[in-house]
Design a protein around this nucleic acid. Sequence first.
DNA 1: AGGTGTCAAGCGTCC
DNA 2: GGACGCTTGACACCT
Length: 297
Amino acid sequence: MRIGYACVNQSVGASASRTFRLASYSEERAAETIASNLRVLREILEWNLARGILYFRISSGTIPLASHPVMTFDWKTQFAEELREIGTFIVESGMRTNMHPGQYTLINSNRPEVVEASILELQYHADLMDLMGLDQTHKIQLHTGGVYGDKPAATDRFVAVYETLDVSIRKRLVIENEERHFNFADNLRIHERTGIPLLFDTFHHDLFNDGESLAEALDLVQPTWEGHGPAMLDYSSQDPDKRWGAHTPTIDLEDFSSVLDVLDGRDVDVMLEIKDKEKSALAANEFLRERAAARSD
DNA sequence: AGGTGTCAAGCGTCC
DNA sequence: GGACGCTTGACACCT
């Protein structure tokens, strides 16, 4: 089991997702920012490897404004070598990565221009991972999308658009259950129609489900990953001081332990969606080591 | 140097 | 019809 964290490392003292305003775009500005982001990305990955963290979510902001029409700078050619080197490092280190486009990426929108922009955004994500030379076990995770008052119709639109996507996107795309609109059971129906693997979010499943236990859901998740590597899980827990659904500021090891009990013997990689990032990932790894040691006694 | 308003983009909820 | 949360920082601009 690989433990990971998302996008930001608060220890290395630099960001791998620096950006700039649309108004200040220039090819020079883009080149500088991308060069900086890739340097820091490499630094974070090395920091992770040195500490046994082998799963990481690469920021969607690595190439700022990548899918925006303003972006005329040919980053794919200009940074081909750097991207390839980072990808080689990832593969040779036995690491796994994913990416997670944000709330504006909606392939089931009923506005065609939103779908169009979303497809361009997905293509950017796929291109970035392809240029790194990462195989299809490295994923792009997406929430299924909006409901628009009619979930069956929204589901049909998702499936219809999914089937038109370039294979470079389809081989990487996975869908994640969330806490309000498309839950695990909803996504399972989409899997049955498309074969898309199901990225399982344990916290969202707690908050919104059709009555399946964690174990029951995981039994159904696992086979959707055939040929795509170990199942990816997102893990978090409730922040006791914040609104419903808010992610905890730091890992709750008691809660984590109860999830681990269900995960035992399953081939999964676990992404922590927790505010303090690498700090909780280190704590989780340490907890796993102690747990394994206690059992071998 | 430090504070603050704003940033490419959508949807759903609440009022 | 408008503000806000998502998730969150980082930039641009002002003092």
